[in-house]
C-alpha cells in the first residue's frame, strides 16, 4: 500500500467536496442551525456559556441526528457510484494504483471533508457559547463533537456500502435517503410499535434500539453530557444499572462495529468487482 497515492486521492476528494453543492449546502445548513440553536437555547435559559451547555447540547444532539446522517450517507453513497457512472473510476483503476488505495483514499478524503464541515459548525457555535460567558468546562462540548464525528463515519461507511453495491449515483442516493429515513424515523417508530405490541422486556428493548447507530450516538452523547441515561426512561435506567461504567465502552465498541463492518463489506465488494 502506497501512502503517497492514498493521500493524493484523499486530497482530491477534499477538493471535490468544496465543489459539491450538496456538501456545501449541508455544511451551511449545519452551521446556521447550530448557531441559531446555541443562541436560542442560551437566550431561552437566561444563562450563558458552557454552564448553560446542557440545554444547548440537547438541541444540538437533535440537530446532529437529523443532518449529519443525511450528509454522510448521501456523500458516501455518491462516492464510488458517481465516479463509475462518469467513467472516471475505470480510468483511475487503469493507473498504477491498487483498489485498496483507491478505497482508503476516497474514504479518508470524505471523512476529512466531514470533519472539516463538523469542525466549522461546532467551532462557530462553540465560539458563540464561549463568548457568551466562557465559564464551565468545554470537555462535554468536545466530547459531543467527537461523538458526532464517529456518527458521521458510521453513516459514511454505510453510504460507501450502498455505493459499492450500485452502479448509478441516482440509485445510490435514493437508497441512501431511504436508509436515512429508516435510521432517523422508521427505525424508532418500528421499535416503538414492536415494543408496545409484543410487550418487549426492557433488556430486549435496549439492545434492539442499539442496533440503530443513531441511538448509540444519542445515548453516548447524553451519557457524556448528563452522566446518566435516566432521562431516556426504563431502557436508560436499565442500561445504567446493568452496565454502569462499562456503557461508554459498549457504545464505543458498537460505534466501531458500525464504522468497520459496512466499510469492510464495501471494500470487499469493490475489490471483487470485475465489471469496470
Amino acid at each position: 500500500m502506497n501512502g503517497k497515492i492514498i493521500w493524493t486521492l484523499a486530497q482530491k476528494e477534499l477538493r471535490d467536496a468544496l465543489h459539491n453543492r450538496w456538501f456545501l449546502l449541508y455544511t451551511i445548513a449545519f452551521i446556521g442551525l447550530s448557531l441559531a440553536l446555541s443562541y436560542m437555547s442560551l437566550a431561552g435559559a437566561g444563562i450563558a456559556g458552557f454552564a448553560g451547555f446542557g440545554r444547548t447540547a440537547a438541541s444540538l444532539i437533535n440537530l446532529v441526528l437529523l443532518i449529519i446522517p443525511l450528509m454522510a450517507l448521501t456523500v458516501g453513497a455518491q462516492s464510488l457510484a458517481h465516479e463509475q457512472e462518469q467513467g472516471t473510476l475505470a480510468y483511475l483503476l487503469a493507473q498504477p494504483v491498487t483498489r485498496v488505495e483507491v478505497f482508503i483514499g476516497k474514504y479518508l478524503g470524505l471523512a476529512l471533508s466531514l470533519l472539516a464541515s463538523l469542525g466549522l459548525g461546532f467551532g462557530i457555535a462553540g465560539v458563540v457559547l464561549a463568548l457568551a460567558n466562557g465559564a464551565g468546562s468545554p470537555m462535554a462540548y468536545i466530547s459531543l463533537v467527537g461523538q458526532t464525528f464517529l456518527l458521521s463515519l458510521t453513516m459514511l461507511s454505510v453510504g460507501f456500502l450502498v455505493s459499492a453495491l450500485t452502479k448509478r449515483a441516482g440509485v445510490a442516493i435514493g437508497i441512501g435517503l431511504f436508509l436515512w429515513l429508516t435510521f432517523v424515523f422508521l427505525g424508532d417508530l418500528g421499535l416503538m410499535g414492536t415494543a408496545i405490541t409484543m410487550r418487549l422486556p426492557v433488556e430486549q428493548l435496549l439492545w434492539l434500539s442499539l442496533l440503530n447507530p443513531l441511538q448509540v450516538f444519542k445515548m453516548a452523547a447524553i451519557l457524556d453530557i448528563n452522566a446518566t441515561l435516566d432521562l431516556l426512561g426504563p431502557a436508560g435506567i436499565y442500561a445504567m444499572q446493568e452496565y454502569g461504567a462499562q456503557l461508554r465502552g459498549v457504545f464505543l465498541m458498537l460505534t466501531a462495529l458500525w464504522i468497520l463492518a459496512p466499510a469492510l463489506a464495501a471494500y470487499m465488494r469493490f475489490r471483487l468487482r470485475g465489471d469496470f
Binding site: 471535490d16 462518469q86 467513467g87 472516471t88 475505470a90 487503469a94
Partner: peptide, 16 residues
C-alpha cells in the same frame, strides 16, 4: 500498469 500508458475510447476526466 506502471508499464502502461492508457488512452481510453471514452474520455472520462474530472471536468472541473
Amino acid at each position: 500498469r506502471q508499464r502502461i500508458g492508457y488512452v481510453p475510447q471514452e474520455l472520462a476526466f474530472y471536468k472541473e
